[in-house]
């Protein structure tokens, strides 16, 4: 029987584990993939207090080792269901675990366009990470889809690597920072494709072109060898919907104190309904959710 089971080993879940262990609680972290969450894709973290220029991998690994050294149990198993009760139960693909409290730190993943052949062409022209894969498109023509900061940053980065960059956006103005848009407009190898959606991916074993459809329904073919998709993130909480209140997008509804609608079940990090999803706010949620879980346990002794 654990005191706290944490679902997800990203920055928020691991921070929660630190607080739990330092309060001498028995803590289990369950993770489906690998520790670190989305931050491992970041080359350099530049906005975390007092840790300038650390790589996402080093950040995640330092945090992971810190959590392990504190005596946390960590298992790599995918959670498929949670059950409420005086003793709560977490069911994974490999077994089940009992706990007094649960902290959901399930995070987010890349939103897909949801068009034909998208999955099949990942790694064959379709990418969700410009800084990871941009180098493969030196002197080639590429496109970025999206209108937020990630899309703008990706396009800026790719302008310096690729021959030509198309920025495809479904509206005629960007959600992202104006400063980034201004910087992009100064580039001489970018073409903005407004009011358009990518509707088809072409190519045999690798991407050769995309079809974009504009508001009036007109199709246009753009010849590119790389398509970088930056249309936001989505949470993965559908398995918990029976028990936990989610909003329309699937984020777990909880105020700043990280309490879900179920007593003794908390949420932290990107999976929670919130305005700012950053490394530092994830860590912050981790601390709050664990502190609340500890309080819940101690009040019931």
């Amino acid at each position: 029987m654990y005191d706290i089971i944490i679902v997800g080993a990203g920055p928020s879940g691991l921070t929660a584990a630190i607080y739990g262990r330092r309060a001498n609680k028995k803590v289990l972290v369950l993770e489906a993939l690998s520790y670190g969450g989305q931050i491992i894709n970041t080359l350099k973290i530049e906005n975390y207090p007092a840790a300038p220029n650390i790589s996402g991998f080093d950040f995640a690994t330092t945090l992971y080792n810190q959590v392990k050294d504190l005596g946390t149990d960590i298992k790599f198993e995918k959670v498929i269901e949670i059950k409420d009760g005086i003793e709560k139960e977490v069911i994974t693909t490999k077994g089940s675990y009992k706990s007094k409290t649960i902290i959901l730190a399930t995070g987010c993943e890349n939103r897909k366009l949801g068009i034909d052949r998208e999955e099949e062409l990942i790694g064959r022209g379709v990418s969700y990470c410009a800084t990871c894969d941009g180098g493969f498109y030196k002197d080639k023509d590429v496109a970025v889809v999206g209108g937020g900061n990630t899309a703008l940053e990706d396009a800026l980065y790719l302008c310096d690597v690729a021959n030509k960059v198309y920025l495809i956006h479904r509206r005629d103005e960007f959600r992202g920072e104006e400063g980034l848009v201004d910087k992009l407009k100064e580039k001489n190898n970018i073409e903005f494709v407004y009011n358009s959606n990518v509707t088809k991916l072409n190519g045999d074993d690798k991407l050769s072109s995309v079809i974009v459809t504009d508001k009036e329904g007109n199709d246009k073919e753009i010849m590119i060898s790389g398509l970088f998709i930056a249309v936001g993130k989505i949470p993965e909480n559908e398995n918990f919907r029976k028990l936990i209140n989610l909003d329309d997008s699937g984020y777990i509804i909880a105020p700043e104190n990280c309490h879900t609608n179920v007593e003794g079940i908390f949420v932290c990090g990107d999976a929670r309904v919130k305005e700012v999803r950053q490394l530092v706010t994830a860590a912050s949620d981790g601390a709050i959710s664990a502190t609340e879980a500890i309080r819940y346990i101690n009040e019931r002794k």
Partner: peptide
């Protein structure tokens, strides 16, 4: 070397 997910794998 610079690829985080590679280093995780």
């Amino acid at each position: 070397d610079w690829c985080g997910p590679c280093r995780m794998l």
